[in-house]
Amino acid sequence: AQEYRALYDYTAQNPDELDLSAGDILEVILEGEDGWWTVERNGQRGFVPGSYLEKL
């Protein structure tokens, strides 16, 4: 798994998404072809927009 940093804040719109704060460090589990990536942070897993992340 790769570590990424959130570039922007994101507020989850659905229960299966995660909130992001700019600067958060996340582990990317799966890069979805639809642009939604499965990530894990502090034991929580959910979808976030891949375009909001940069690889560390």
Rank of each mutant, 00 (worst) to 15 (best):
A1Q: 02
Q2D: 09
Q2P: 06
Q2R: 11
E3N: 10
E3F: 06
E3P: 09
Y4H: 07
Y4E: 01
R5C: 04
R5P: 00
A6L: 03
L7P: 01
Y8P: 01
Y8N: 11
D9T: 08
D9K: 08
Y10I: 01
Y10R: 08
T11M: 10
T11F: 06
T11H: 11
A12P: 07
A12E: 00
A12I: 00
A12Y: 00
A12R: 08
A12S: 08
A12F: 00
A12C: 03
N14I: 04
D16M: 13
D16F: 15
E17G: 05
L18K: 01
L18Y: 02
D19Y: 04
D19N: 12
L20N: 00
L20Q: 00
L20T: 03
L20P: 00
S21P: 01
S21F: 12
A22S: 10
A22M: 07
G23H: 02
G23E: 04
G23V: 00
D24H: 03
D24F: 00
D24C: 04
I25R: 11
I25K: 12
E27N: 09
E27S: 13
E27A: 13
E27G: 08
V28P: 04
V28G: 05
L30S: 15
E31G: 05
G32E: 07
G35V: 03
W36E: 05
W36L: 14
W37I: 08
W37L: 11
W37C: 14
T38F: 09
T38M: 12
V39E: 01
V39M: 03
E40A: 12
E40G: 05
E40V: 12
R41W: 03
R41A: 08
R41G: 06
N42E: 15
G43R: 07
Q44P: 02
Q44W: 05
R45A: 07
G46F: 04
F47H: 12
P49R: 07
P49A: 02
G50A: 14
S51W: 14
S51E: 13
S51C: 13
Y52P: 01
Y52M: 10
Y52G: 05
Y52F: 15
Y52D: 02
L53F: 09
E54Y: 05
E54R: 07
K55P: 10
L56I: 15
L56K: 03
